[in-house]
Structure formats: structure tokens, C-alpha cells
Nucleic acid binder design. Structure first.
Lengths: 218, 218
DNA sequence: CATAAGAATAAGGCTATCCTAAACAATATA
DNA sequence: TATATTGTTTAGGATAGCCTTATTCTTATG
């Protein structure tokens, strides 16, 4: 069983657990772009390896062992994102894919040294928390921008769709990057589209997009 | 066909071509630690892909296309070695393996930015030349230490067995690192064992080992 | 030049991962 | 509650890459 493949399954499951628990076969299939049948098969393998709990028709959940692997992978992924962004000058829109490849090629030693070199940062360029070597799942801070009411303001913390570089480029064009101050001027009653103020200019952003942006209310 | 596997074959063939041309099935099998039969099979696949020339029973040689891929991989490998050594503080004995993994996970963009970040170095921590983006195979400079005569001195340029960390540790203990000045005091007529002077102290080194160390005669 | 030794390939098999199509389970609806 | 819809698993099959064993080719030697 290729280590790489296993890791990709663990990552999907771990990420999906934030929203759905246990995680359904079809969600995993969609994220990994494989057939549901392949996922069923793989879940049985991961079960045998003690990485997930799994009951046919009952979805999957990471075991302690699986979760540990997942967090370590997330840590490596985000450390590489920091490196790519901070030292190689690659934009936050484009660091996800390369980090995805690099994380699977990172030994314990390199992960540790890389962490030290970067001064063990707390967040990746998208603002998402970087798990510590101590294995606790960090919680995604803040609430969705879409949940602010008209008149409320907040500070952007992170974005939770870091793999979508088109989306990130769009956010950049709006000035919506981690740390940015944003105020909701209006919410459309029809579909929730937001009128916001960023950098002293007024912009519009759809409900869908706004629900992927986490802010700290001010 | 996994990209990774293809790349590993190309690398073995490219490296072996320095000493043997065309490259025999069994040499590749030995380097990759797979059976000769598997190599035969793979060579047919690489042939179809236009990456090697290959005639059954006649060995293999990289095509222009194959050579380009090989040089690019070598470049990435050695750039990562420089990074691991210079920025993460990993010793030259230990940079080979991690670089081996990372090189296959490196996109064109990352390779280019990494090169710039490192200031496009000319050599890796083992002293081996780093191919330029312009695709010419760099010549390994110098001659084997084992070829110096008694009384001759030289400056160490590089080592050509960079994957053997035990060997590298041994060289470190002798003070034999790239740039070191070394003088041959005596060569045993029996088996060529050398008595050398490095850093004002006298050491012994076997013929085999000494043939892997390249020096520039002074 | 015949043959033995060594190298390479062919034949046949194994496993991991994926697929499609068909069967089956769970859920929502009438 | 019966049934339609949706989601999941099973069955059967493909391919990549590896293996072992048996055969074939090349080459070196008597």
C-alpha cells in the first residue's frame, strides 16, 4: 500500500471531519476525485491498519493513530507553505499545490529542522493554524464572514479553502487577506450577498465565498 | 506509470552513463535494488515514451529528452541539498536521502525560485556541479585522489558517492571535505592504500575510497 | 568452434489501486 | 407503510510495477 496514497486519504478524512462526522464515502470520493467504490475498498484497508474506524454504510472517522498522522501531515504542509511564501516569494494563491507534494516527501528530521528554521510559526499564509508537534488538533479560529450582521466589523483571520487558487486570487483583488479589517455594510435578503468595506473601498462578495472567510468580530 | 518511478530509472541511467555506456540492465537493477527482469520491462516502457534508446540485450542510453529530464532532476536534487545543508543545518552526510525525496516533489516554479533563493549555486555540499537550467551535462571536475602519485598534492573538489552517509562521515573524520588540501605521502604498492596528509596530520585511506574523491592537482 | 558461464528476456503470478456495473441499504416521500 | 431516490458496497476487470523461474542470447575459453 503506497504511503502516499494512505496519506492522501487520511488528509481528506481529517479535513472533512471538521464539517461532517463520521465522514461519508462519497465526500471522500469527491475530494480525492476517485469513485466511491475505490473509497470503500481503501477504508477497509485503513481499518485493517488501525488508522480509521469504519462500519459499512456508517462512514469513517480517524482513530487516535490516524489523527496523529493527519496532524503531522497538516503541520508539514503548512510549514512548507510558509517557506514557499516567505522565502521563495510564491503568493498565497499558489503555495497550496507545491506544499501538497512536498509534505509527502518530508522526513521527521527535515520537518523538525524546517520548523525551527521558520521559527515554528503559528499560522500558514492562509491564516490557518499550524498544529504543534504535540498532536492536538488546533481549532480554526473566528466565525464566517457570512455570519456577520450588517453594521458589524471584523478582522480577517484565515480562509478555509486554501486549495482554490482562483478563489484566493479573487480575495487578493478584494484586499481580503489575513489581518485585513472588513466591515459588513449590507446583506442582501434575497441570497445573502454582502456589501463590505475593505481598505476604505466598497466591494461585493457572495454568500458562498463569504462563508469560507473566517473573521474575528470587532 | 508513476512519474516517480520513471524519474528514478532516469536518474540511475544518467548517473551510470558516466562510467558505462550503454548502461547494462544489471547495473540499473543493482542501483535500484530491483530484479533485472523488472528493469527489462521498464526499459521497454521508457523506450515507448522516448526517454531511452534501448535494444534488447544491448543496454540503454538516455535520449535527448531523457537527458534533459535527468539533468533537471539532478539540479533539483542538488539545490535541495544546498538548502538542507545551508539553511536547515543538516550535515553533508545526511542531505542525500531527504533531497532524493524532495526532488520528485518539486515543480518547475519551485525549482526556479529555489535556485534564485540559493543564488544559483554551482556545487552541492558534496562538491558536485549543479547543472544549469541550460541543460548541458556538467563535467565532474578533477581526478581521483587515488590517481595522484606519491609526493603530489591536490585540493579536494568533490566526492562522487554522495549517497553513502557512512562513507561521508568517515571522510569528515579524516578532514576530507570539499576544499581541503591533501598531499599523498605514499602509495602502497600492494593494494594502493594511500598515506595522506590533511590538515597537518597523517592519515591512511584505502584505494577504493580514494578513487571516489576528486581532487585538483596542485 | 564448441560450449560453459554470465547476462538478459519471457512467461506467469502477485498486490495495490483504480474503474464500471450491478446489487443492496438507508432515507425520504407519497 | 410502500416505494422512489440516493448512497454504499460487491463483483469483476484493468494496469503498473514488482517478483521468481525458465529460457535465450552473448561472450569468453578450452
Amino acid at each position: 500500500m503506497s504511503e502516499r496514497t494512505v496519506e492522501e486519504y487520511l488528509e481528506s478524512i481529517g479535513a472533512l471531519e471538521e464539517r461532517e462526522s463520521p465522514v461519508s464515502t462519497s465526500s471522500i470520493a469527491q475530494v480525492l476525485e476517485v469513485s466511491p467504490a475505490s473509497v470503500s475498498e481503501m477504508l477497509r484497508r485503513l481499518l485493517r491498519k488501525g488508522l480509521v474506524e469504519y462500519h459499512p454504510y456508517g462512514g469513517a472517522a480517524l482513530t487516535e493513530k490516524g489523527r496523529r498522522r493527519f496532524l503531522e501531515l497538516t503541520r508539514r504542509h503548512r510549514l512548507w507553505e510558509v517557506f514557499l511564501n516567505r522565502y521563495l516569494g510564491i503568493g498565497w494563491e499558489d503555495v497550496y499545490q507545491p506544499a501538497c507534494s512536498l509534505e509527502h516527501a518530508t522526513s521527521d528530521l527535515v520537518a523538525e529542522k524546517l520548523g525551527k528554521f521558520l521559527d515554528n510559526p503559528d499560522v500558514c499564509p492562509h491564516g490557518s493554524p499550524i498544529p504543534k508537534s504535540n498532536l492536538k488538533r488546533p481549532k480554526v479560529p473566528g466565525i464566517p464572514l457570512a455570519d456577520l450582521e450588517a453594521g458589524q466589523a471584523g478582522k480577517m483571520v484565515c480562509v478555509v479553502s486554501e486549495s482554490n487558487s482562483k478563489f484566493l486570487r479573487y480575495l487578493t483583488s478584494l484586499g481580503l487577506i489575513p489581518g485585513a479589517k472588513v466591515k459588513v455594510l449590507e446583506k442582501a435578503s434575497f441570497d445573502g450577498t454582502l456589501t463590505i468595506e475593505v481598505n476604505n473601498s466598497t466591494k461585493a462578495i457572495g454568500r458562498e465565498a463569504a462563508s469560507l472567510i473566517m473573521v474575528e468580530p470587532v
